[in-house]
Nucleic acid binder design. Structure first.
Lengths: 134, 134, 134, 134
DNA sequence: TTTT
DNA sequence: TTTT
């Protein structure tokens, strides 16, 4: 069906890069703090703390370019998993698998936009450089 | 910042309607099964099971019109909470607070769209019935 | 940056399948009618009529499985183009490039969900069938 | 049905604030340049140029705090309109009605998040400060 | 009519 | 604890 999440927020800590034991695929994880747009009863602005998972090249870009406090945009999907905890109980996990991560701590680029500061997701293109549908 | 989730899926069970103890506000909860668009290593299509929370009038509409297996669209935001579990440990919960729920198994409407089959969220309108910006 | 649109609505007419002149890539176009969730001053429910473009295999699936009135979900991005009109003026076009189309006229599937009724976008998988990040 | 668009991009010019002739409601418009995440055949990064409409208090905030080049996040819905052009032809317009605008070039806040730098959308709260659904 |  |  459809499953889409878009977030803008800041990393609560430096990202953690690991590699899967079998295939050696890069995977980076971190928690994103997303300020709410409304305040609570005490007039305080709270935040949601959302676990993010990034795979492959983007995982390495995130590990290289991001740190605690970095502002990013995430476009991804919700994933749920469950596992057996140490106490024998089933534990349920919800996290966002990021398909596109944008770095937003914008010191404006010096190159007029040709490079992309680690935002290198050119493999995910749907472009056909031709023709005009409507 | 930004926090937006859109889902289309089916209820795993009948929705549960309750009222908050102090203010008596209606709140309905259910789990949404969202089929993935890709298959796993065994060629099987898996799903994510995502907790949904709906408040107020929409909570009552959901309780009245939805049941196990109903197909719906959800437009909302991710919320995280944590609480102390019985074993003294902190437990983390991630759920979607639905701001808009659309009922989708329904036959095309016979009334030309005047009624809205329980999808009554007219209070959330941004419409200004006047003028043309661009 | 980020550019994401999610829609649920019905085709206003049968979809149109064409092929690009040079590369012969399949492209399907149609207009999606998306009912608004609020009513206008006259208490009528209006709709937005949004041009959709679908490429490649999904274009052919759409042409094969959809028709006027079909209910679908679209996950894509906004694209703007401009061209010189017959009168010599520049004309501006905004349309949604669908990256994922879901067929929602649910006659429940008979196969327990193994097949996918033309919703075959398995090439867009980010899955790594291994490991547990958090 | 569902209609949701999320964008992150930069204003191509200073925003324009007007007031509707009858009700005197504030409305601000601007074009958002959204860089694509992929490059074209020539290896250049292109952008989409998307018309944004903001109403009421947020319109005034945008006019006060934004200018050409400002980086923002937009959460809104697509709206289509048509009108008769001077040449007697029907012209079709697609634009994003912003329900939530986030200002993103801003330095991390010094006040621990109490204020909100013109991002004052507290009227759109769904919060019930009580109870734990799941 | 396009931002960085 | 999972829908079709």
């Amino acid at each position: 069906m459809l499953n889409r999440t878009i977030l803008v927020g800041r990393l609560t800590k430096d990202p953690e890069l690991r590699y899967t034991p079998n295939s050696g695929v890069a995977v980076t994880t971190f928690i994103l703090a997303v300020d709410r747009s409304f305040t609570n009863r005490q007039g305080e602005r709270e935040a949601d703390f959302i676990p993010i998972v990034v795979w492959r090249k983007q995982a390495e870009n995130c590990a290289n370019y991001l740190k605690k406090g970095s502002l990013i945009g995430v476009d991804g999907r919700i994933q749920t998993r469950n596992y057996e905890a140490n106490d024998g109980q089933r534990r349920y996990v919800t996290e966002i698998v990021a398909e596109n991560v944008r770095f937003l701590d914008s010191k404006p680029r010096q190159d007029g936009g040709k490079s992309n500061q680690g935002n290198d997701f050119s493999e995910v293109g749907y472009e056909v450089d031709e023709d005009v549908p409507f």
